Amino acid sequence: MLARVPLCVQCGTTQNPCRCKVVGPTLAFLAFVIAAVVEWPVGALVYPFRHIKGRRIMSHPVSVVYPRVSSAVPF
């Protein structure tokens, strides 16, 4: 059985001459998954006691990790 590597493609960007990004969004997706595996259970444990803090912890992979990693790699 062959292992599949997730590939994410973002077209229409102005960060490079090809106007498509593959490496940045793919690395960002992998970083998002790793951060989510750690932060979502922690956020779920914090949420019953501190609602706003729990929501902020659970939204961190989406709002901070993915955009920073995706924009850091221009291709």
Rank of each mutant, 00 (worst) to 15 (best):
V22G: 12
G24E: 02
A28L: 04
H51M: 11
H51C: 08
P6W: 02
A28N: 05
N16D: 09
P17T: 13
V9R: 06
H51Y: 11
Y47R: 05
R4D: 14
P48K: 11
V5E: 15
N16Y: 08
A31K: 04
Y47V: 05
G12P: 08
V5F: 15
G43H: 01
L45Y: 05
C8M: 14
W40P: 00
V33D: 03
F29R: 01
F49Q: 02
Q15Y: 03
H51T: 11
P17G: 12
V38D: 02
L45K: 02
V38C: 12
Q15H: 06
A44G: 15
V37M: 09
F29T: 00
P41D: 11
A35R: 04
C8A: 15
E39C: 08
Y47N: 09
C8S: 14
I34V: 15
I34S: 13
P25Q: 02
L45D: 03
E39I: 06
Y47T: 09
F29A: 01
R19N: 11
L45R: 02
V9F: 10
A36C: 04
V38L: 13
F49E: 00
V37N: 07
P6M: 09
P17M: 12
T26Y: 02
P6Y: 07
V5G: 09
L30I: 09
V22T: 15
A36I: 00
P41H: 04
T13N: 12
Q15L: 06
L45F: 05
C8T: 11
I34F: 12
T13E: 13
A28C: 05
G43N: 02
R4E: 14
C11D: 09
L7W: 10
C18K: 15
R4N: 13
L7M: 11
V33W: 02
V46Y: 06
C18I: 14
P17E: 14
G24V: 00
C8V: 14
T13D: 13
A31H: 07
F29M: 01
V33Y: 02
G43I: 03
E39H: 08
L30Q: 10
A36V: 01
T26K: 00
V37A: 10
C11K: 09
V22Y: 13
R19G: 03
V46W: 05
C8R: 11
V9H: 05
C18L: 15
C11L: 07
T26I: 00
Y47L: 12
L45M: 07
R50K: 06
P48I: 11
T26A: 03
P48E: 12
V22S: 12
H51F: 13
A31E: 03
T26H: 00
P6H: 08
V22K: 14
A28M: 04
G43Y: 00
K21G: 09
R19F: 06
Y47A: 08
P6A: 10
P17F: 14
V9W: 06
P48L: 11
F32G: 00
V37R: 05
V46K: 03
W40R: 06
K21P: 09
V37I: 11
Q10R: 13
R19T: 07
Y47W: 10
G24F: 02
V37P: 00
A35W: 03
P48C: 11
L45C: 05
P25I: 02
C8G: 09
G12S: 09
G43C: 04
G43E: 04
R19K: 13
